[in-house]
Amino acid sequence: MVEQHIASAFDRDLEAIQAQIMKMGGLVEAAIVDSARALETRDEELAQQVRKRDQAIDGLEEMINEDSARVIATRAPAAVDLRVVLSVMKIAGNLERIGDYSKNIAKRTGVLVQWHDSTDSSSALRRMAREVELMLKDALDAYIQRDTELAADVIIRDQEVDQMYNALFREFLTHMMEDPRNITACMHLHFIAKNIERMGDHVTSIAEELIYLVTGNRPEDERPKADMTSTTAEEV
């Protein structure tokens, strides 16, 4: 941060909500990693834990929103302080969504345990989740360091996640065409891939919030999009 406020309690308020974001970020990173590991190892117990821990993430989001509202009401933040509060509220929303996607992956893991998976897509999904988790870690580091270059890098890396998703989309389509008995498992696996792809988009939004916080402007270029599946059709 720049210089300190004359009212030191204002600094403490802003630091407190940003500390909550970091705590929430830590929980969400763990949820991504654990949901992907539970999927790969078909570990129902770990999947159950991920589902349970989502409550803590939701609770933190609520707390951040309440504290932000209180800071707006009592401190009337302006300029960079206003952007801190606005960005914190949006980032909390993004993190909460990522938490929900992890929880959804954990739920689907419960179903997939009963199916024999002849593909190696679970490890591909775990690699994809790992990439998103690293992006999130960098986005949060960029936030703490106010590092717009690192944030810009995160935004670019989302393309790789999109490409991983494209590849998996085609793979699932092929498996389903080969043998209709694969359809149930592949549908769930596809939703999981889509969840991870959406997580990447939320991480990108977090990186964009940091750029807004530092510069006062949102990144001008349209964010790179490499998810082509909306227009993909396979010959049957």
């Binding site: 720049v2 210089e3 300190q4 406020h5 004359i6 009212a7 204002f10 933040p77 302006a78 300029a79 960079v80 302080d81 206003l82 952007r83 006062g216 402007n217």
Partner: peptide, 19 residues
Amino acid sequence: IFTNPDDPRTESYITGRIG
């Protein structure tokens, strides 16, 4: 001026950082 001032002195003043 109140969301994104150009000058750091303006920013400091409106956010309560200089007297």
